[in-house]
Amino acid sequence: MKKLFVAVCALGLVSLAHAQTAPATPNNAATQQQDFSKVIEVTDVDHDFGKIPYGKPVEYEVTLKNISSDSVKLLNVQAGCGCTTPKWEAGPYAPGESFKIKLGFNGMTKGNFTKYVTVFLTNGLSKQLKFHGETYEAPDNAAPANGTVGQLKPSGSK
């Protein structure tokens, strides 16, 4: 009786393990990237902000051009975190037409940063954009901007 129970449990575990494996499919991410590049030409896929002051908002524009023979519609531009704000218009965009996505970053990450934004188009096409840089903080004991440094005291004062 115990052997039968163990055999049934083992059979159940094997069937559960088999049910969890994903079916073999072609690499969808590579297929979408290839298809995206046949439809849209993108400038500045990986933008370098360089060094920026900590907490100073910055932004840049990415230009996209419809290089296909059909119109496309921009469905969504999704930022990876709340420190990034995309500004865009859905379209549709005719063949040969260029459009822009403005990406803003609030600068509230200390040190090196890398942020991602995903662009979603009709027909299941998507493309990930990246920007990076480094923030720096001004020292607390920075020199005064202008004023008392180098001023002469009036004669007769100590």
Results as ranks from 00 to 15, higher is better:
K3P: 00
C9Y: 10
L11T: 12
G12E: 08
L13T: 03
V14D: 02
A19I: 06
T25M: 11
P26S: 14
N27W: 07
A29L: 09
A30N: 04
E41D: 08
E41F: 05
D44M: 00
D44G: 02
H47V: 09
F49Q: 03
K51F: 14
K56C: 05
V58P: 03
Y60A: 09
V62G: 04
L64G: 02
N66E: 03
S68C: 02
S71A: 15
A79P: 04
C81P: 08
G82R: 09
T85H: 07
A90L: 05
G91I: 00
P92W: 10
Y93I: 01
P95Q: 11
E97R: 03
K102I: 15
L103C: 11
G104Y: 06
F105L: 12
M108P: 00
M108Y: 08
T109W: 08
G111S: 06
T114E: 15
V117W: 00
T118E: 05
F120D: 06
L121K: 01
L121M: 12
N123L: 05
L125D: 03
S126G: 07
S126F: 08
S126C: 07
K127Y: 02
Q128W: 01
G133Y: 08
E134I: 01
E134R: 13
E134Y: 13
P139M: 08
D140C: 03
N141M: 04
A143I: 11
A143C: 06
A145F: 13
A145G: 12
N146D: 14
G147K: 07
G150R: 07
P154W: 09
G156P: 00
